[in-house]
Design a protein around this nucleic acid. Sequence first.
DNA 1: TATGAATGAGCGTTCATTCAT
DNA 2: CATGAATGAACGCTCATTCAT
Lengths: 191, 191, 191, 191
Amino acid sequence: MPKVGMEPIRRRQLIEATIASMGERGLADTTVQTISRGAGVSPGIIHHYFGGKDELLAATMRSMLEQLRADVTERLAAAGSPRARLEAIIDCNFAEAQFDPRVVSAWLGFWAQSPHNPALARLQRINARRLHSNLRHSLRALLPLERAERVASGLAAMIDGLWLRSALTGAMDGREARAVALSYLDAELNA
Amino acid sequence: MPKVGMEPIRRRQLIEATIASMGERGLADTTVQTISRGAGVSPGIIHHYFGGKDELLAATMRSMLEQLRADVTERLAAAGSPRARLEAIIDCNFAEAQFDPRVVSAWLGFWAQSPHNPALARLQRINARRLHSNLRHSLRALLPLERAERVASGLAAMIDGLWLRSALTGAMDGREARAVALSYLDAELNA
Amino acid sequence: MPKVGMEPIRRRQLIEATIASMGERGLADTTVQTISRGAGVSPGIIHHYFGGKDELLAATMRSMLEQLRADVTERLAAAGSPRARLEAIIDCNFAEAQFDPRVVSAWLGFWAQSPHNPALARLQRINARRLHSNLRHSLRALLPLERAERVASGLAAMIDGLWLRSALTGAMDGREARAVALSYLDAELNA
Amino acid sequence: MPKVGMEPIRRRQLIEATIASMGERGLADTTVQTISRGAGVSPGIIHHYFGGKDELLAATMRSMLEQLRADVTERLAAAGSPRARLEAIIDCNFAEAQFDPRVVSAWLGFWAQSPHNPALARLQRINARRLHSNLRHSLRALLPLERAERVASGLAAMIDGLWLRSALTGAMDGREARAVALSYLDAELNA
DNA sequence: TATGAATGAGCGTTCATTCAT
DNA sequence: CATGAATGAACGCTCATTCAT
């Protein structure tokens, strides 16, 4: 019998190595070699388990999205009020795991590539819609429709923007980002 | 009989072609060939005028930053109050020229690359600081120090985030983005 | 409890799958994977039973030659005259099993490879000699030496050429090929 | 001004090197490296002038076909009778240049690959039709329709078969091949 | 000033083969 | 007896860069 059950282990290893390489070098300089070397395996294994580099990149993005989605779902279930739900969403997006510089840098690479790669664009669109829809749903209980829409767009943009600036400047951690976003939310709710 | 005075013309041509290629294909698929073909010149000319691809990319980013900086400077000079200055900054960032999808997409590429390219990182840092500093300076006249800092960070993040989402989803134009940002500003000023 | 007596079954399976793959894809695109998938077994099994791809290819060619040789031997034994013997040789070479497009296409691949592969070249040479010798032996009873040699060469070339054109154009079946070859034979015998 | 007029020189160089490599190693072991090394240029040049290996292979086959076609056209123009025309066709196919072992070996590679490569198949089909049509046209003046068809098929097959056996066994030169083919022709004409 | 021919390192991918199970 | 995970060399190809003209 062959060595069995390696598939999920190898897939996880390779996805982690992809995030690490994107964080260190950026997407442009992330090659099959840098990934496989980082995972301690041979380059050929990527094609064995993912069929090619593109599919590994898509799987990596899917994995990152899924982790975020699972976090949000769990925290939303425990939230008792619209305000608490909004706070939960913000908290999840700025949780330490999501604010890991390597993860944020990987996001940045996917963002830049997605307008030119249908598979990534699709994932990106799904995520953007989910964030906006989650925000709008909770805001609807607290604000009139039009303002709820606007604040949902603003909060979504601010979340992405805070991530972005953290990737670019490194001059902000999750706690600060959270404070800025909550300050915005409260200002709009109290306006 | 050599043509003289071609340098500024060629440099501008090549920078425009770089933005166009980055908008159409993304940074990853922008090559010396796509740029030179877009400019209607030979690949060798890039090295003649810029020394190499990297320097052309940096020059392109510099050019985009300079256009934005010039815009802001001009508009700030005409603004009579702190509130008007803040509005001018927001207006400039969401002016039509800055919101051109090709330009936004080029920005996205530079953002993704800059953590791994010192020349781009330097330019990016200067721009981020200028935006933050401009915002903070005007906000200081309207808010206490700590809140001014926080709102400056929030507004800067929101501006970048709105650009980002416009590049990724195309579902927002400059006018809407401006409204969202101004709504945030007013909410914080009135809080 | 190991399965015993699998060897001849597996070897036959793999040889059949090799012919099928060469017929469908050509030798150049026939890989250990296409063969093993076609046989419904794992790639490793080829090395278990044949030691490697090259030896499987040689075994496949040997198998095809042997089938032809056995056919010819049987038909020659039943032939009562030199003319009948020549007809038997032609018949065997254009029998339906030999004219199967997959088989002809496999032959074509071996022909192209054999000048650069000693094992295949050896098999090819043995076969070419056997055909020529069988033809010459029967022709010697009907023609003077020099003409017998020449017609043997001509018939051998025509047999291979008719196979070849059937592989390349598919515009000829065994019956037609047989008629062309017999027409040649009779023309030379009656000249 | 750039080094100019290199294109036809380089294309010819690379086509010659392709034939040489196919003759020495066979199509299967002919790589971009073996070709470019044989031509004394860098591997990248193949993509510069031909776009890729496949197009170089097709251009090589085209070049070989064109040489044969030009030969035949010239010789046919000088032939005064149907018999002389047939002889001219046979002569051209067994001319020394066409019987060069490297050229014959290259043909063999193309034959084996053409059923699986539309571009090669098209060229091969055109050539097969031209040969058959040339033969039939001249034979029509000497034989009834049905026999003319049959002998055309037979002669075409024999020409290919003699080439093939010369590639496989090396035991025949153009002069002998010519004699065998003419013997067949005369036998059929006198039958 | 400008060309485009030419290079060669490095890319993603394929594949025959090995081997622990 | 049989698997399929894993390797690593070699493939076709891309691309920034150089340079003779």
